[in-house]
């Protein structure tokens, strides 16, 4: 009934993190999720590895020995490397995130973080997610979302959604088959980057769920306990 955190697309991930314990933990957890992980502890080696290897996602700590994370990212970007980068940081003020993203990072996560959050965000950064940005029609099972006409249909029947619900579903469908956390939803659907204290997001999701599941037999919007939500057929 509750799907396990299962990911179809195995990714090759490079983790540049100088905290040995944290790095080992990340490696083990990514391994268990079925991804291939390389780990290095300093910025210079990390940059060389990123330049020579073919990684799907880079996870870069901001404060690194020998070359700091932001420098690594901006140099990679200057060389035309477009590999998605998630920045890890012990700093956490809003402007840290802004500088991180400005340097070329694609997402930003503040320590301490839940691994499920890191995994979900790395999954979301995968290139296939980026490729979906140019698609105009998302399909998950019998659920369809047309980005041009702003219509949602399930099993051929129109489903009426509020604008915000539409954006919520759009984000979930773009990341169909991936876990999406509450903070990711708040960030991408509402454009706020704080941690929702109460279950505000959950209530929005259950409203949406009611609209897309109520009169249909099979659930598509699943809750992943301790992590977030996943849109998946069947």
């Amino acid at each position: 009934m509750v799907p396990q955190i299962a990911y179809n697309d195995a990714m090759k991930i490079l983790v540049i993190e100088d905290d040995r314990e944290a790095a080992d933990y990340i490696r083990k957890a990514f391994d268990e999720a079925g991804h291939t992980v390389d780990v290095t502890g300093d910025g210079e080696t990390g940059q060389a590895m990123a330049e020579n290897g073919t990684y799907d996602v880079l996870v870069v700590d901001r404060m690194l020995p020998r070359r700091d994370g932001l420098t690594v990212i901006s140099q990679l970007r200057a060389n035309g490397d477009k590999t998605p980068v998630l920045i890890l940081s012990a700093l956490g003020e809003v402007d840290d995130r802004v500088t991180g993203l400005r340097a070329g990072g694609d997402d930003y996560l503040t320590k301490p973080y839940a691994f499920s959050e890191l995994l979900a965000r790395v999954e979301a950064l995968n290139r296939r997610g980026a490729a979906k940005d140019i698609e105009t029609l998302y399909k998950v099972g019998d659920l369809e979302l047309d980005r041009l006409s702003h219509t949602v249909r399930r099993a051929g029947r129109d489903v009426l959604l509020q604008p915000r619900e539409f954006r919520l579903l759009e984000y979930l469908m773009r990341h169909a088959g991936q876990v999406v956390t509450r903070t990711m939803l708040l960030e991408n659907v509402w454009d706020y980057h704080f941690d929702p204290q109460t279950n505000v997001i959950d209530v929005h999701v259950s409203r949406l769920r009611a609209k897309i599941e109520k009169e249909f037999d099979t659930p598509v919007l699943h809750t992943v306990r301790g992590a977030g939500y996943m849109l998946k057929a069947g």
């Binding site: 915000r164 509402w190 706020y192 109460t198 279950n199 505000v200 209530v203 929005h204 409203r207």
Partner: peptide
Amino acid sequence: RDVVELYEPLAEE
């Protein structure tokens, strides 16, 4: 408006 919209479902619940 954003915040009210964000909390409206929670309030209703």
